[in-house]
Simulated scan of single mutants.
Amino acid sequence: MTAQRACALSELEQDTPLRVVLDGKPIAVVRDSNDVVHAIGDTCTHGDISLAEGFVEGETLECWAHGSAFSLVTGKPLNLPAFEPVPVYTVTIDGDDVLIDPSATVAA
């Protein structure tokens, strides 16, 4: 499959996750404080909670429900209670379009 338009770059507020669904996969898109755009699986592996409702700090996204923080770069949980990683997707910026391939994950 190929990359799909997830949103406009101008829609992304810094450190504020945006939930998108591509090919039935919920994805949290984040523009971090360094203006880097990340895309990770939007479902916390601990409690089936949307990570896009969580909090961004640096290169981490914290689940609001139980406090597990996930690396935006690797998808790995950085603390308990989550111990399984979330998928990380490649992001391409084309003008004002944020493109993500929901079928291809980045190897951590």
Rank of each mutant, 00 (worst) to 15 (best):
C44A: 10
T92D: 15
R19I: 03
V56F: 02
I49R: 12
D42E: 07
T90G: 14
V56M: 01
L22D: 05
P26E: 05
S10W: 00
I100P: 05
A39P: 02
S33V: 13
P81I: 01
C7G: 09
T90W: 03
H66R: 08
A8V: 01
P102S: 07
G75L: 02
E11F: 07
L22W: 04
W64R: 13
S50M: 12
E84W: 06
K25I: 11
L80S: 11
R31M: 10
R31Q: 12
P87L: 05
V29I: 15
A65M: 11
T45F: 05
T105M: 04
C7P: 08
A3V: 10
A6Q: 01
D23K: 13
A6I: 01
V91A: 08
E11S: 15
Q4E: 15
F70M: 06
A82D: 00
I100F: 05
L18C: 03
I93R: 10
T90A: 14
A107K: 13
L72M: 10
A28I: 02
I27L: 08
T90R: 15
L18N: 00
Y89K: 06
F55R: 14
V36S: 12
G95Y: 08
V30Q: 01
Q14V: 15
A108N: 09
Q14H: 04
A69D: 06
V86S: 06
T16H: 12
S103H: 13
F55Y: 14
L80C: 08
C63G: 03
N79G: 03
R5W: 00
L78S: 07
V36F: 10
G41Q: 10
S50F: 14
P85Q: 04
P87K: 05
C63E: 04
E84R: 11
C7F: 08
G41F: 07
P102Y: 02
N79Q: 05
F83P: 03
D97I: 03
V106L: 14
D35C: 00
L80I: 10
T43P: 00
A6N: 05
G54M: 06
P102G: 07
D32P: 10
A69S: 15
G24R: 04
A6L: 04
P17R: 05
V98I: 13
A8C: 11
L61T: 02
A3E: 14
R5F: 01
V56G: 03
E11I: 07
I93H: 08
V86M: 05
S68Q: 04
L80A: 12
F83D: 13
C44I: 09
V36Q: 14
Q14D: 00
H66M: 09
A108K: 09
H46M: 10
T16R: 15
G47S: 11
G58H: 09
V86R: 06
L22V: 07
T60I: 09
D94F: 01
Q4Y: 06
P85G: 00
E62F: 04
R19S: 15
P102L: 07
A65W: 09
E62H: 04
I40P: 00
G67I: 08
E13V: 10
M1N: 11
P81D: 03
A3W: 01
